[in-house]
């Protein structure tokens, strides 16, 4: 294994790190930057619990070698809120009682944030289809889908 110097911009903060070539971005975020909001759920891009944003696009952090993320502008679930002010998706998940155990929630709110940046005016089918890569074993998804539609409505009103 070889070592590589990389730079990650995470939640507006610049990190200069030396990583092994096989180190995964998820592990670097969790165990080295202590950003444990992104979760390990499967390690094979199947459950979505590790979802992060690169700019406005969602990625599975469990599938990205840290060395490949050199120079990326990353937002993790910890970076979605503006200080204590939650983003509209986060607030909507609380308002619509869309949270149970909460282990999938970081991935869900990150994916939903990406969804609304891609399509600010989604319908229910669009939301359901977009979230099919994120597993939740607790809620049955209905309240989560409502949350995303609610957040879309609130964001439109705010404009």
């Amino acid at each position: 294994m070889s070592k590589h110097d990389i730079t990650l911009n995470v939640n507006g903060k610049k990190y200069e790190l030396t990583v092994e070539s096989n180190e995964l971005l998820l592990n670097v975020l969790r165990e080295r930057l202590y950003l444990t909001g992104s979760k390990y759920g499967c390690g094979i891009a199947e459950c979505g619990a590790c979802t992060i944003l690169k700019d406005d696009e969602s990625y599975f952090a469990c599938m990205v070698p840290a060395v490949a993320a050199d120079g990326w502008n990353i937002t993790t679930v910890e970076g979605l809120a503006d200080g204590d002010k939650l983003n509209p998706v986060q607030q909507a998940f609380i308002d619509n009682s869309a949270i149970q155990c909460g282990f999938c929630v970081p991935g869900m709110v990150v994916t939903s944030t990406a969804l609304l940046r891609e399509n600010p005016d989604p319908d229910e089918d669009f939301v359901k289809d977009y979230l099919r890569g994120n597993f939740c074993r607790c809620t049955g998804y209905v309240a989560m889908v409502k949350s995303v539609l609610d957040a879309a409505g609130k964001m439109k009103e705010a404009k």
Partner: peptide
């Protein structure tokens, strides 16, 4: 009554700690 769950803000912002988050 429906009240926002107490752990909601921590869960939506990645701050809630599960066993695997302990370092």
């Amino acid at each position: 009554k429906n009240t926002p769950r107490i752990d909601g803000p921590a869960k939506v912002s990645g701050k809630q700690k599960y066993a695997s988050d302990i370092i």
